[in-house]
Design a protein around this nucleic acid. Structure first.
Lengths: 199, 199
DNA sequence: CAATGAATACTGACTGGTCAGTTCTATCCC
DNA sequence: GGGATAGAACTGACCAGTCAGTATTCATTG
């Protein structure tokens, strides 16, 4: 049982290192050295390298999901909700850029244990997107939005845009602004328009 | 100098295998076996495993860029251009799903030769996005669009959305439709609106 | 056209290094 | 004291990359 302080240090170090290089470029010796723990200690808390890798991702994603759900609880207005949620995501990944890289370095299938791991990843990622989808749905139900796409699909689009923005934040306009701007851009495509159609 | 038939086979096999697993999970023995060439032959055409990996990506990306540039030559209307370009991207990656995975499995920096490689990747990726950006710019200059974001930024957003869509095509509405729908959704956020503002 | 030989393309067994994972003893600190 | 930990030393698997030898191609010559 013991304190999980060591486990936490290992996770933090691993997060940083795994984000700075590919899986095979990061050695456990490196991790335990930089974390200031013995190599054996890693194996006290994690099954193997692969497990450690996934724990890094999953614990990080859990934090994000938790934070997103708060937004859903606290906000009623769809537009505001979408903007707040977007800002939340961006803030989170900005703070933990290492995790961002890691999270979106899409790794691959696999029907074994690794498959289960990606299953878990998928669940959490979905949970995050669901927050966006819920706000969109809210907007549609209250007839503020009209959409040719499902809320889930739109949620994914938002996710994709935020990801692109994060990857190139230097090209995005001032500071905390851009996530809101991006969401508004998309949102205004959801608003019903009386006059001319797009195409 | 002989035909590069073998080189091509190696590239094709490598594309498939690299897309199906992470870099360290794919062995050269596997590649040369499935490609039906001797291991040494790989080294006749490629410097090393890393080089092979990048060649797969770069040659693929080159094809896509070429295809995108055609769209720019052939289309004048911004809206139509964006839609066509989006469809082109999606078609391409649909045909070569392996490449899609590979392309967007963002690998990591590195100041050595690997850095140069990512430089090249970046150039080509930029070239692809530039096609979108050019159409957006065209729309802005002709005063059809008004945007709070730069054409480059918007191009990235489009890229992000298409990527999300491709990753989950099953959730997207009917067949070849969705790229156009997605672009129109964003485009309608670019059209000037007389009445109420979004926020 | 066949024979010759040189150049080039190719093969796959082998090697050396790397590293995940284990074990064990000395040490820490609760 | 006793459980947790450090970390050195070890092992065994694995695999990128090599290279000596074989096959193929092609130009040259009688």
């Amino acid at each position: 049982m013991g304190c999980k302080r060591k486990a936490k240090r290992i996770l933090q170090t691993a997060e940083r290192l795994f984000a700075s290089g590919r899986f095979h470029e990061v050695t456990l010796d490196q991790i335990c050295q930089e974390a200031g723990v013995g190599k054996g200690t890693i194996y006290r808390y994690f099954d193997d390298k692969e497990d450690l890798y996934f724990q890094v991702i999953l614990t990080g994603l859990d934090e994000l999901v938790e934070s997103m759900r708060q937004v859903r609880e606290q906000v009623d207005d769809p537009g505001e909700g979408l903007r707040k949620a977007a800002c939340r995501v961006v803030e989170f990944y900005r703070k933990r850029h290492a995790l961002f890289r890691l999270m979106h370095t899409e790794q691959i299938r696999g029907s074994d244990r690794k498959g289960q791991m990606w299953q878990k990843w998928h669940t959490r990622h979905q949970a995050m997107l669901d927050v966006f989808a819920d706000f969109v749905r809210m907007g549609i139900e209250s007839e503020r939005y009209t959409a040719r796409l499902s809320p889930e699909a739109i949620a994914r689009l938002i996710g994709g845009m935020l990801r692109s923005g994060l990857r190139n934040e230097d090209e995005m306009p001032g500071g905390d602004e851009w996530p809101a701007v991006v969401v508004e851009l998309l949102e205004s495509g959801l608003l019903p328009r009386e006059n001319g159609e797009t195409s």
